[in-house]
């Protein structure tokens, strides 16, 4: 395969990943590394470097649309970014020290978790929780517009959320993904932040988290321009288109199909990691 063909195929694959990621709300980053490593036979370190770059692009590109809706909470995001950026630095240093087979195994588990997370029925958050002293001191409680008026929320359990965010950052730095699923888990489940606020604030945080490990990856030579170029442009174009077309009726089936794809890729990554083929 020559460079022109390779660029076109990787660009097309990244476009589809970005499109499906945006349509289903699952994020395209998580399928990019397995796509590059398993299908295009790219070394997983180059794949992670390219994926991380595309994660910054999609997060920053989508943030403009999300913030206008008034759901994301910048104070929650900024405070938790202390945990995610330190975690991301740790993850990036870890990635340069542990064998690629171990990275593949962690990746496989993360994919299976993401597939499970996307299918899990979501229980609505309890409303009207009492204010938590720490969250109140940190000025995290907020409000957002919803049908029927303004809804206020009181953030809970800051230490648990902060710890989970450190884990999310480490996974992001280690695997070159946004790890939005773990971020939403920390905010929605642990800190009892309404789902809409959790997802948009998570998306907002992903770019800064990824930037924290990008410096390490760039200086270690993981970011190859010839590979990162079609991945970044493809994912960006795909997610841009995906956020613009609304296919209400198809989304349910798309989500099912996409989560099956994620699960299959997870099993393959586990298999390749465990048999030392990566």
């Amino acid at each position: 395969m020559n460079t022109l063909e390779f660029t076109a195929l990787v660009g097309a694959g990244s476009f589809v990943a970005g499109l499906l990621g945006a349509l289903t709300g699952l994020g395209g980053g998580v399928v990019l590394v397995p796509l590059l490593a398993l299908f295009f036979k790219v070394d997983i370190r180059y794949a992670i470097g390219a994926s991380l770059v595309s994660v910054i692009a999609t997060s920053s590109g989508a943030a403009a649309a999300y913030v206008k809706e008034g759901f994301s909470n910048i104070r929650i995001g900024m405070f938790l970014e202390i945990a995610t950026t330190i975690g991301a630095l740790a993850g990036a240093f870890l990635a340069t020290r542990i064998p690629t087979t171990a990275i593949a195994i962690v990746f496989g588990v993360m994919l299976l978790y993401s597939a499970y997370f996307s299918r899990k029925p979501r229980l609505p958050n309890e409303r009207n929780l009492p204010p938590n002293p720490l969250a109140t001191r940190l000025k995290m409680n907020g409000s957002f517009p919803e049908a029927g008026g303004i809804r206020h929320y009181n953030v809970q359990n800051v230490p648990a959320g902060f710890s989970l965010m450190f884990g999310a950052g480490t996974l992001s730095g280690l695997l070159g993904i946004g790890s939005g699923a773990v971020k939403v888990l920390a905010m929605d489940q642990a800190m009892k932040i309404p789902f809409k606020v959790s997802t948009t604030t998570s998306n907002f945080m992903i770019g800064v988290t990824a930037a924290a490990s990008a410096g390490v990856y760039l200086s270690r030579g993981y970011v190859d321009p010839g590979l990162a170029m079609p991945v970044m442009l493809g994912v960006l174009a795909g997610s841009f288109l995906g956020s613009r077309i609304l296919v209400e009726t198809e989304t349910k089936w798309l989500r099912i199909i996409f989560s099956v794809v994620i699960a299959v890729l997870g099993l393959q990554m586990l298999y390749h990691g465990l048999t030392g083929k990566i």
Partner: peptide, 20 residues
């Protein structure tokens, strides 16, 4: 470079001029 072969199977790390 469009016509040249492309291969990312082995990890070499980027040369100095693409790392700093």
């Amino acid at each position: 470079y469009g016509g040249m072969a492309s291969d990312y199977r082995a990890f070499h790390g980027e040369p100095e001029q693409f790392r700093t």
